[in-house]
Amino acid sequence: MTVTEIDVLPNLRDLGGLPAGDGRRTREGVLYRSALPAPGDARPTTVAHWPARTVVDLRSPREFATRAHPLQSDGTAVHQISLLTDTEVTAPSQGTRLTDIYRRILANAGEKLADVLQVAATAPGPVLLHCAAGKDRTGVAVALLLRIAGVDPGDIVADYVSTNEQMPAVLARITRFAPELGMTHPHDRDLRGAVPEAIEGVLALWDAHPGGVHAWVRSHGATDETIRRWSERFTV
């Protein structure tokens, strides 16, 4: 049987191999990102270890509750950590800059992002982060984990923008596997794709915070021990 493009989880990649300063690089097999998994997905060929042992689903409660998570099993734990509320997900986004949506996540869900860091630092790996498109909520959460580990902003932006290559498959998958979201999601924010200025604004806010991104995430509940454990786990 031929595996069609829609049967393959799009936007799935291992975030290992990125420069992390001081001659270090991010470790492969630790952190993945993707769009929305679906029942019956073909085994992916873009990552070495599958399924991930830990999944962080960043969707809102209503999105999460529509059906059982397809990766939940005895060998895979799924954590729901919503970065946008149901109301924020369904609110019209026409005319709203992605930069403003991302900064709203930082303002309203800082503690949730600290929770993402805690799971990534302590739960069995590989750890997969995803939302619906794997672009906005996933983009912010991944940017945080990469920046904490010392990855340069330019490399973070490059990873974020690479999602644009996957957007046709992402949108097709949402239409097929999450039709209940079709009336409200994808918004025009998905049709806009990954906008570099949006994630650059997030990185600039963290870097401008006194003490940088480490101090920012500590101000939202993360501990020095969690930051240390994540950095040691993810870089080599």
Rank of each mutant, 00 (worst) to 15 (best):
M1R: 13
T2E: 12
V3E: 07
T4A: 09
T4I: 09
E5I: 00
I6R: 15
D7K: 14
V8F: 03
L9A: 01
D14T: 06
G21W: 05
G21Q: 02
R24P: 06
R24K: 15
R27P: 00
R27W: 04
A42P: 03
R43W: 00
P44H: 11
P44T: 14
T46P: 08
A48I: 01
W50A: 04
D57E: 11
S60W: 02
S60I: 00
P61A: 07
E63D: 03
F64P: 00
R67L: 10
A68I: 00
H69E: 01
H69Y: 01
Q72V: 01
D74F: 14
A77D: 07
V78I: 10
S82A: 14
L83C: 03
L84V: 14
T85L: 03
T85H: 11
T87L: 05
E88Y: 07
T90K: 10
P92K: 09
T96P: 02
L98K: 01
T99L: 13
I101L: 15
I101A: 15
Y102W: 13
A107N: 07
N108H: 11
A109S: 15
A109K: 05
G110H: 10
L113F: 06
V116R: 00
Q118V: 13
V119D: 00
A120K: 02
A120T: 05
P124W: 12
V127G: 04
H130Q: 04
C131P: 01
A133R: 04
K135S: 07
D136Q: 01
D136E: 09
D136F: 12
T138H: 04
V140I: 07
V140H: 02
A141E: 02
A143P: 00
A143Y: 00
L145W: 10
L146W: 06
R147N: 07
G154W: 03
G154H: 08
D155L: 05
I156H: 04
V157H: 09
A158K: 04
A158M: 08
D159A: 09
Y160R: 14
T163S: 15
T163D: 13
N164R: 08
Q166W: 09
M167S: 03
V170E: 04
R176G: 08
A178Y: 09
M183S: 14
R189L: 15
D190G: 15
A194L: 04
V195N: 10
V195A: 11
E197I: 13
A198F: 10
G201T: 10
G201F: 08
V202K: 10
V202A: 08
A204M: 07
L205D: 11
D207P: 02
A208M: 08
G212L: 05
H214L: 13
A215Q: 11
S219G: 15
S219L: 11
S219A: 15
S219W: 01
T223C: 12
T223W: 14
T226D: 15
I227M: 11
R229M: 14
T235S: 05
